[in-house]
């Protein structure tokens, strides 16, 4: 599903280029559930942005579903994002002046794919995440957990192969975290590949595999000690 080979990413600061990812290699099979851990500033989000084609790598190769992302232009990357990837962010990233329904519908507005029964699809997903009754409300009227469930519904609406979650439980309480993690597990059980960025070991343990990003390099985490806890 995902193949990263010797990926480098530089961070530009005051005319200086500092490496944030130094030769990252990653292989993720279709349908895997992977957690990536690392300390603040270790480059977790940078890596997620690269995987999500939101950013471009400075060197190395990236293949997603057999397509060479590193050779793609902006347009193709946007189309790939729309067709194959669903995002779940820590800050939910919902558009504040659009309703819950409109937010979930948004990915179906873009891309080349012609969707039939868009409305039914969105409403079905909202039922699945338990927010059908709040479909006409603005995100500001929702709790953190509800916002994240809307974000998950939006991530799933275009039936992506890959779900990228950046600290999806970072802003939630324990009970809501559990609900969101169950939803993620459901998504995974339905066949999607899930890559989740987190700094919470308990959350990461729910994944099939845990990777650790340290010093710009990605490694399999053998035990808790490796994370330095």
């Amino acid at each position: 599903m995902i193949e990263l080979r010797n990926v480098q990413k530089l961070y530009r600061s005051g005319g200086e280029k500092l490496p944030i990812l130094r030769g990252v290699n990653l292989h993720v099979e279709k349908g895997e559930y992977v957690a990536i851990m690392g300390k603040s500033g270790s480059g977790k989000s940078t890596l997620l942005n690269l995987l999500g084609t939101l950013d471009v790598l400075d060197s190395g190769e990236y293949e997603l579903a057999g397509q060479a992302v590193h050779r793609m232009g902006k347009g193709k990357r946007a189309a790939l994002r729309n067709e194959k990837i669903g995002f779940v962010f820590q800050q939910f990233q919902l558009i504040p002046n659009m309703s819950v329904y409109q937010n979930v519908l948004l990915p179906l507005t873009y891309g080349q794919k012609r969707w039939s029964g868009k409305r039914a699809k969105v409403l079905h997903l909202l039922k699945e995440v338990g927010l059908f009754h709040k479909r006409n409300q603005k995100p500001s009227r929702l709790s953190g957990g509800e916002k994240q469930r809307v974000a998950i519904a939006r991530a799933l609406v275009n039936e992506p192969d890959l779900i990228l979650a950046d600290e999806p439980t970072g802003s939630l309480d324990e009970e809501t975290t559990e609900n969101v993690l169950q939803l993620m597990e459901q998504v995974h059980a339905d066949g999607a590949t899930v890559i989740m960025i987190t700094h919470d070991l308990e959350v990461a343990k729910r994944a099939e595999r845990i990777l650790l990003l340290k010093n710009g390099m990605l490694k399999e985490m053998a035990n808790e000690a490796a994370y330095g806890i």
Binding site: A78, A79, R81, Q93, L94, Y110, G111, R154
Partner: peptide, 16 residues
């Protein structure tokens, strides 16, 4: 700006 970022993350192209 953030809205634009969200739209692009959801697959909106530069042209769109």
């Amino acid at each position: 700006t953030r809205e634009i970022g969200i739209r692009k993350a959801l697959g909106a192209t530069t042209f769109e």
